[in-house]
Design a protein around this nucleic acid. Structure first.
Length: 512
DNA sequence: TTCCGACAGTGGGGTCGCAAT
DNA sequence: ATTGCGACCCCACTATCGGAA
């Protein structure tokens, strides 16, 4: 199959807003693909490379290359070249990668270049990713989409399911069962604004502490232990503490779901930055582990002794977890009978925050483990802080925000009467607010350079954030975590905005 | 007919590792 | 040694489609 065919279909998919039409377009292409093309075509149209990320980003792709007049590249040729590209390393590798990218783009037409750019940067922006591709695959093969979806979640991979389906038909889905040693997409949580709201929605539930670390899925099959992240990357080699802990548990075959986090000598959780830095260290793991030891803390079990527990209610899975994992290695929790028992849930949240954790996850006791879904039965609750800050500048948006000032630079008052930038945010605005702020900020503009418009510091905006963290990038030495806009405060003058001093006073645990 | 679940898009900060400077 | 880039951790929120209620 020619790359130009994919590029055209991707454009058509992007051009329609109807999901059903997107699915039909993808299905048509999947039907057309030859067997050898399938493992390439399907991930490409889901916006991903079969090789995963290959070290080519925006920078290298931005060097202009004259496009070819005629489309000639096949998807298999592209795939072979990208496989080669992904293996380039060592001195001179950047030049070699640039050369290969140039070769690829030079052989591509303008449309193909656009498609490759999206594919390699991981931003196809066609309004269809994995989920829509799964539907397309179901339509192309005649398999029930719920079954295809479930197989993809259990396989942790769209490609393998697609290959099996297109070569062996719908019967192949049977092969994708929960298997120890093969990671499955983890269940995720929605947010709730309060414990009361969460308990109201869920009724009888468990309120569990939410640890601010790295999500892990741990598989043990005899002496073999594997540890995977939320996106199923294998990080076994970086976490010797986790493998040894798993080997000491009284079970030979199991799959556990939990969090890895570092505690200090007093048993308080270290900051996310410290835990993440440790888990990210690959070169000298032993030294990193001495410096910042981590602990696994589990909250769910998906499989034990060869039994698939996914469809068991959470209460049943937790009973299995308690049999397998000793209490210190499980998250703390309180079981609540329903809204009548709200006091106990709120008390548990307060205790959890006092212990230094980020919040709680409220989980319905009846719910199965919905692999790969953001299940409505898991609701996280975290305290939200707010500040009144001043807009110092704004950046022109991309994609659907093209032509709108989108990303705001946020400042707090300083002692000398000026403002210190604390970070940026693009979250929380409606289209109406986006249009309004574009107009308003244009009136306040004093300078435009590149995509940044600097404004007079006069507009006050109320910002929600999850916490303060250290920063080497911003002048106050701190930055906001997960900042988002709540509303503009035209009733407030910039002199009334919050100051760096008061912000630091509100977060005594964080020092610049 | 209205409501709501699921998705995609729009990007944020930090840290590590690697290659280039 | 320092800098720039890419990958990958954490993530909130809105708009939209289409099936459920």
């Amino acid at each position: 199959m020619l790359l130009s065919r994919l590029a055209r279909v991707s454009q058509e998919v992007a051009a329609t807003s109807a999901r059903s039409r997107k699915i039909a377009l993808l299905a048509g292409l999947f039907r057309e693909a030859e067997a050898d093309d399938v493992p390439i075509v399907i991930p490409y149209l889901a916006g991903r490379l079969p090789q995963g990320r290959i070290g080519v980003g925006w920078k290298v792709l931005s060097r202009p290359v004259a496009p070819a007049a005629e489309a000639s590249l096949t998807v298999r040729q592209v795939d072979a070249l990208l496989t080669t590209l992904g293996k380039v390393s060592g001195p001179g590798s950047q030049a070699e990668r640039a050369r290969l990218v140039g070769e690829l783009l030079g052989a591509s037409t303008e449309d193909e270049q656009r498609f490759l750019f999206g594919l390699l940067t991981g931003e196809v922006r066609q309004g269809a990713l994995d989920a829509v591709a799964v539907e397309g695959l179901a339509e192309a093969t005649g398999a029930p989409s719920a079954d295809v979806r479930r197989a993809v979640m259990l396989a942790g991979s769209l490609q393998s399911v697609a290959g099996a389906l297109l070569s062996d038909g719908p019967g192949a889905l049977e092969r994708f069962r929960l298997t120890v040693g093969r990671p499955v997409l983890p269940m995720l949580a929605h947010s709730a604004s309060s414990v009361a709201e969460a308990v109201e929605k869920l009724g009888a539930c468990a309120v569990e502490e939410k640890l601010d670390g790295i999500r892990v899925q741990v598989h043990r099959d005899g002496d073999t232990v594997r540890v995977h992240t939320r996106t199923l990357d294998d990080i076994t080699g970086r976490l010797p503490e986790v493998t040894s802990a798993a080997r000491e548990l009284p079970g030979e075959r199991f799959i556990l779901d939990g969090e890895v986090i570092s505690f200090d000598d007093d048993g308080r959780p270290r900051s996310f930055q410290e835990t993440a830095g440790r888990v990210g260290s690959r070169v000298d793991v032993a030294a990193a582990a001495r410096e910042v030891p981590v602990s696994p803390v589990f909250f769910d079990v998906l499989s034990v002794g060869g039994r698939d527990l996914l469809d068991l209610p959470f209460s049943g899975r937790h009973a299995e977890l308690a049999r397998l994992v000793p209490e210190p290695m499980r998250v703390r929790r309180a079981v609540v009978s329903g809204p009548g028992d709200l006091g106990a849930a709120e008390e548990f949240l307060a205790e959890t925050l006092k212990r230094g954790h980020e919040g709680v996850v409220v989980k319905g006791l009846d719910a199965p483990y919905s692999a790969g879904r953001r299940g409505a039965s898991w609701l996280k609750v975290k305290p939200v802080h707010t500040l009144d800050l001043v807009v110092l500048a704004a950046e022109w948006g991309h994609g659907r925000r093209t032509g709108k000032l989108s990303n705001l630079h946020l400042g707090a008052r300083t002692a000398d009467g000026g403002f210190a930038m604390l970070g940026k945010t693009f979250k929380g605005m409606t289209d109406t607010m986006l249009a309004w702020q574009t107009e308003r900020l244009r009136e306040l503009a004093v300078e435009e350079s590149g995509y940044v418009v600097t404004v007079r510091p006069e507009l006050v905006v109320e910002i929600a954030y999850d916490g303060l963290q250290r920063s080497t990038r911003y002048p106050a030495g701190v930055t906001l975590r997960f900042a988002r806009v709540i509303r503009y405060r035209e009733d407030k003058r910039p002199e009334e905005a919050d100051s760096v001093e008061s912000l630091l006073a509100a977060h005594p645990e964080v020092r610049p």
